[in-house]
Nucleic acid binder design. Sequence first.
DNA 1: ACACATATTAAGGCGGTATTAAGATGCCGC
DNA 2: GCGGCATCTTAATACCGCCTTAATATGTGT
Lengths: 233, 233
Amino acid sequence: MNKPLILVVEDDTAVRNLITTTLKAHDYRFLTAANGESAVLEASSHNPDIILLDLGLPDMDGVEVIHKVRSWSNLPIIVISARSEDTDKIEALDAGADDYLTKPFSVEELLARLRVTQRRLTALQIGAANTEAVFTNGKLKVDYAAGCAFLDGQELHLTPSEYKLLCLLCKNAGKVLTYTFITQQIWGRSWENDVASLRVFMATLRKKLEKEPGSPQYIQTHIGVGYRMMKVE
Amino acid sequence: MNKPLILVVEDDTAVRNLITTTLKAHDYRFLTAANGESAVLEASSHNPDIILLDLGLPDMDGVEVIHKVRSWSNLPIIVISARSEDTDKIEALDAGADDYLTKPFSVEELLARLRVTQRRLTALQIGAANTEAVFTNGKLKVDYAAGCAFLDGQELHLTPSEYKLLCLLCKNAGKVLTYTFITQQIWGRSWENDVASLRVFMATLRKKLEKEPGSPQYIQTHIGVGYRMMKVE
DNA sequence: ACACATATTAAGGCGGTATTAAGATGCCGC
DNA sequence: GCGGCATCTTAATACCGCCTTAATATGTGT
């Protein structure tokens, strides 16, 4: 996977800088937001991998931010807060947060918890059921650990979106995946336009891995429903 | 999902009882282990959903337990420890723990973090191929989760309406379904013309799954009433 | 044999999907 | 900060297949 993109939501400039310099030093990319409104905006427009969220924001309560993000996405949210009360923790966690650190926090612990979250993300892409690191189907091979795909021994040059799409289909091989499910997994949302984009990606993906894109061998269309990875001998 | 099974690993009897009574009160099932060896054994033999792990065990270090479990499984591990040093936290998290609470911990917070973990588990199952919803009748198979049907092991290529119709009959196997009921389920309406369409769909469907469409084996006509999926041996 | 209900067949219109290309965006090195 | 490259988005068009409809054939009960 490429460098993960972290959205840092924190109004205190000093703390924000501390976090961002730490992130930069450890090979993360990052965005920042100083209030709730821009946090939601950044999250929806840049689709980060993880959100680091301070609860004490000037314009709205942090829990509200969690709710808004959760309304369209389930990307990991790690809360960093000065409030150490149990009720605060519980409220945030039940609202949809994945972890909760209290200030003052150790930078090393933050990094460790980020690694945990990342580990979970990559585990997700491999799929929970089959712990196989390599998916094989006919002449198609997908090496999840290496993050690349092969057809007939030859490596396929796939864009990030194409690769995600292929992984999703492979890890659910045999099942029909609906348009909305696919777009939610890839973009964390499901708008009308995303389905159109999905069709474009499907076209380019098929062109790369199907010998006759007209009569696909691997990816089958289910009209009005979605797509499905066929099991090839 | 059924009541989740929690493995509680804790050598202090008092703390262990506190945790287990709490779990029992909140509709969890649980197992217990008082040392590292039995913890690994229980985990491998009973396949719990989540492990609650105390690091201070008499026979081996808790981190070692994490490593052993992680060698074959990635089930969620929540560490509960008296050690509040950063290095301890980081070591455990990097070894494969999913969360880390320091004693004394709030019972409510523990429950909240358990809910977070559960939420993550169920979210995973949406994408994973765990739901075994398959209808079987003679040589006919309908995989609702995969969204496709098989006859004698061979996949049937059905149009959306044909598939819907087949599902409806299968889910009500043995019952006679009236024309109006079927059309309302498929199109959400019941006009005169829809019954005519239904007859056409029935013809194409039968042609695909009946060996002798003249004397149907699976779908029986009830004149003046509707159709019925027969139960075949 | 007649009337009625159901099955079959074929043709046309329509909607959803594939494909293409151009414009927008973001990312990288300089 | 700027320019070039790759990727993503958006829109327009062509295409294919499904659905509908109607007309005809077959079957069933009286």
